[in-house]
Simulated scan of single mutants.
Amino acid sequence: MSDQLIVHHCAPTLAGLKAGSLFSCPCRDAGQLTGELRRLNRALAPKGLRVLPLQTEKGRALIYLYRPRALERELAGGEARALLKERGYGAEAACRCLARLARKLRAGEAFPHEIGLFLSYPPRDVRGFICNGACRHKCAGCWKVYGNEAAALRTFEVWRRCTRILEARLAQGYPLEKLAVAG
């Protein structure tokens, strides 16, 4: 997996603006993927980041890059915690919630739309999508918005700007670990 792919899909997480990001990459060899994830974790752990595979199937891997402390804070919020409980998660640490999410993805049942909570989407919008599907949202960008449209539009713009900046820095030769902020 290329650093360009990671920056394109994970810049706001690298910059400390969100708790986690997802991306998909080719996975023809599980051993090679494991080695690549180890390399990334060694490089990014000092910045407070972790990388792990959530699902691997049909020659692709779904990779989650996240900030454990930020994820813990986001999932501890009242609305997020209530939504997770409704979706079968206990009152457990974020790392256990993440393990449960990975099991749900691997089981191949209905897609776990609570995944938005792990991507820093507002709980109200995650609930709105679960209840309404792709219908009746106010606007769409990185996610479908059912709640505060103005705040979501600001967030979309900040995340887009962050991605452009980090992609430009990567193109100038900055290594991935220098693009990630400590947190």
Score class of each variant (00 low, 15 high):
residue 82 A to L: 03
residue 153 L to W: 01
residue 128 G to P: 08
residue 165 I to Q: 13
residue 95 C to Q: 15
residue 151 A to N: 04
residue 156 F to I: 07
residue 85 K to D: 11
residue 63 I to M: 05
residue 87 R to G: 07
residue 75 L to I: 05
residue 124 R to G: 07
residue 131 C to Y: 06
residue 143 W to F: 01
residue 86 E to W: 13
residue 97 C to S: 13
residue 119 L to G: 02
residue 139 C to K: 01
residue 92 E to S: 08
residue 114 E to C: 13
residue 163 T to G: 08
residue 160 R to V: 06
residue 92 E to W: 06
residue 119 L to W: 08
residue 143 W to C: 12
residue 104 K to H: 08
residue 134 A to M: 06
residue 125 D to M: 05
residue 89 Y to Q: 14
residue 98 L to M: 05
residue 119 L to Q: 14
residue 149 E to N: 03
residue 76 A to R: 03
residue 128 G to M: 11
residue 131 C to N: 11
residue 105 L to A: 00
residue 110 A to F: 12
residue 136 R to E: 11
residue 126 V to R: 07
residue 112 P to W: 03
residue 94 A to M: 03
residue 107 A to M: 09
residue 80 A to T: 02
residue 124 R to W: 00
residue 78 G to I: 05
residue 115 I to D: 10
residue 126 V to Q: 08
residue 94 A to N: 09
residue 166 L to H: 08
residue 154 R to I: 03
residue 108 G to R: 03
residue 77 G to V: 07
residue 129 F to W: 01
residue 149 E to I: 00
residue 102 A to Q: 10
residue 140 A to F: 11
residue 102 A to I: 00
residue 129 F to L: 00
residue 144 K to G: 04
residue 142 C to D: 15
residue 83 L to Y: 01
residue 103 R to A: 15
residue 76 A to I: 01
residue 94 A to D: 07
residue 134 A to W: 11
residue 146 Y to F: 15
residue 65 L to A: 15
residue 76 A to N: 03
residue 114 E to I: 11
residue 116 G to H: 14
residue 71 L to V: 08
residue 112 P to I: 08
residue 168 A to R: 14
residue 131 C to R: 15
residue 126 V to T: 03
residue 117 L to W: 00
residue 64 Y to Q: 10
residue 161 R to T: 12
residue 140 A to E: 04
residue 90 G to V: 13
residue 153 L to R: 09
residue 92 E to P: 00
residue 95 C to K: 14
residue 79 E to D: 13
residue 69 R to W: 02
residue 149 E to R: 02
residue 106 R to N: 14
residue 113 H to V: 01
residue 145 V to M: 06
residue 168 A to T: 07
residue 150 A to L: 00
residue 156 F to M: 12
residue 92 E to C: 05
residue 147 G to Q: 00
residue 134 A to K: 10
residue 122 P to L: 06
residue 88 G to A: 12
residue 65 L to I: 04
residue 133 G to E: 13
residue 99 A to R: 15
residue 105 L to N: 06
residue 162 C to L: 02
residue 164 R to K: 11
residue 94 A to Q: 05
residue 79 E to M: 08
